[in-house]
């Protein structure tokens, strides 16, 4: 079997054995959908939209963020700390194959979490399909790329898996606040909303939300996502160490 295929297979198996990375992160957004779907709605007004439709982009963004900011850096920092990558560099294989396999596995996990949200939301709670599917998918790709590149910064700077996991969580919760997890966009105070425009998770939620109602995302949010992606990639590449 080829080295790349075996490496990917091995990384998938290792990923599936991690209870948080494989057991919790991918189903977490779908669980949020269930909670939201079960909230008895009073006479609150959400601008004529169903609460579940407003909440789906938030849940999806949180799922991607958890995988990208917690799982990915924890795996990579642990690999570096334990000398897994150094040992690989003594073989004819390139350690970059392992990193690529890890990134692919995490992107796969993010994709699974998104599909679960649509399955659970669509089947059980009448979640609407995105207004513009092309725009929706493009924003998802941008968002996954952005958050993964920020995860790589953490992977590059954290000396070991425990630190990476701590940093990931410390990034995740404030970002989740600006993404509107507790106060969805329409209910946010103006200042929080203004900051939220520039926070990766906030920009992602709002860009997704635009495509859900059939509009194109605002250039500001697309620009913010691309900007963070570029910044993250540059910093990660600058500080990354194999050993």
């Amino acid at each position: 079997m080829s080295a790349v295929r075996t490496t990917v297979t091995t990384e998938v198996r290792l990923f599936l054995r991690d209870p948080v990375a494989a057991g919790f992160a991918p189903i977490f957004p779908a669980l949020l959908m269930v909670l939201i779907g079960l909230i008895p709605l009073g006479d609150e007004d959400f601008g004529g939209r169903a609460l579940i439709d407003i909440y789906a982009p938030i849940a999806i963004s949180m799922g991607v963020a958890m995988t990208a900011l917690v799982s990915l850096p924890t795996f990579m920092a642990t690999y570096r700390e334990q000398g897994v990558l150094r040992r690989l560099s003594a073989t004819p294989a390139r350690p970059s194959v392992v990193l690529a396999a890890q990134a692919a596995v995490n992107c796969g996990a993010a994709a699974v979490s998104i599909i679960l949200v649509h399955l659970v939301g669509g089947l059980a709670f009448g979640l609407s399909a995105p207004g513009t599917l092309v725009g929706y998918l493009l924003v998802l790709v941008l968002g996954i790329g952005c958050l993964m590149s920020l995860g790589l910064v953490s992977a590059a700077l954290c000396s070991n898996g425990r630190v990476a996991s701590g940093v990931g969580n410390a990034l995740f919760f404030p970002m989740a606040f600006f993404a509107g997890t507790w106060t969805p966009g329409p209910a946010m105070p103006d200042l929080v909303r203004a900051i939220s425009d520039f926070v990766p998770l906030g920009a992602l939620v709002q860009a997704l939300d635009a495509t859900v109602v059939g509009e194109w995302p605002s250039p500001l949010h697309v620009g913010v996502l691309i900007g963070w992606t570029v910044l993250g990639s540059v910093v990660a590449a600058r500080f990354f160490r194999w050993a």
Binding site: M1, T7, T10, Q82, G83, A93
Partner: peptide, 27 residues
């Protein structure tokens, strides 16, 4: 072939998986 000081494998990899993985690196 190299055995390095202070380098480990991922804790959750099995012996068979590690052997299969490393076998795949060599011609």
């Amino acid at each position: 072939g190299v055995q390095l000081q202070e380098s480990r494998l991922p804790d959750k990899i099995t012996v068979a998986e590690a052997m299969r993985l490393y076998s795949s690196f060599y011609p």
